[in-house]
């Protein structure tokens, strides 16, 4: 279970969180659950994803994963959580631009060898970016990079998959292909999917929707 307890970014005004269903609330995300967080610009969507992933700590309140607190975990402890329990697709993707797609994915697979290289290639193939295997990430289009970031996030073990506007640069067809693949991989791991976006994604039928 991923728990949020009375979470408020330190730089937020109290008024700003008054109507939020997540900020300053007690929220639990269960494994197996599909969650959508609808968050208009400036409501702190990316901050929330960063908080949940343990990248930032400029908030009041507490985040727990199982019995472990993410809030005061050390960097080596966080690394273990990221290796086995959490996976993420950042809004800004965060691929290694100087490496090829192959090296980007093998670098992830090196630390979390969950899928075989063939299986990873199959994921790329399903999203239509297998042809980019030997290309440097910096030469891929933003849409291609987004699909590769999704494959990277799906190639490792996780209990909770965090997605920050994962389809923002994909056309409808590619978005549907990516969503299908994500749902399939999440189901295979019996994991939770937490998708944060600016608007309601009509193709995604979540178990629960939160308004940030």
């Amino acid at each position: 279970m991923l728990q949020i307890q009375s979470l408020i970014p330190t730089y937020f005004d109290e008024n700003k969180v008054r109507n939020s269903e997540i900020w300053n609330q007690a929220v639990h995300f269960q494994k197996n659950q599909q969650v959508e967080i609808v968050a208009p610009s400036g409501s702190g969507k990316t901050s929330l994803i960063h908080f949940l992933y343990g990248m930032r700590h400029d908030y009041k309140g507490k985040i727990l994963i199982g019995q472990q607190t993410i809030t005061d975990a050390g960097v080596d402890e966080l690394a273990l959580i990221r290796q086995s329990k959490l996976s993420v697709v950042f809004q800004d993707l965060r691929l290694f631009p100087q490496l090829t797609i192959e090296d980007n994915l093998l670098l992830q697979n090196n630390i979390t060898p969950f899928l075989s290289i063939e299986q990873i290639k199959e994921l790329l193939n399903r999203l239509g970016v297998i042809s980019k295997w030997n290309q440097l990430a910096r030469y891929c289009s933003y849409g291609e990079q987004q699909r590769i970031a999704i494959v990277r996030a799906l190639s490792k073990p996780f209990d909770f998959l965090l997605l920050d506007e994962p389809f923002s640069h994909l056309d409808e067809n590619n978005s549907l292909l990516a969503l299908d693949l994500i749902r399939e991989q999440v189901k295979a791991r019996n994991a939770a999917l937490i998708l944060a976006d600016l608007n309601k994604n009509h193709a995604f039928q979540p178990d629960v929707i939160y308004h940030l």
Binding site: A79, R94, F96, L107, Q108, I111
Partner: peptide, 15 residues
């Protein structure tokens, strides 16, 4: 940037 990104994708600084 690369070192930060490595810790982001799960590499521990101790390792």
């Amino acid at each position: 940037d690369s070192l930060k990104l490595l810790t982001t994708i799960g590499y521990s600084p101790a390792w």
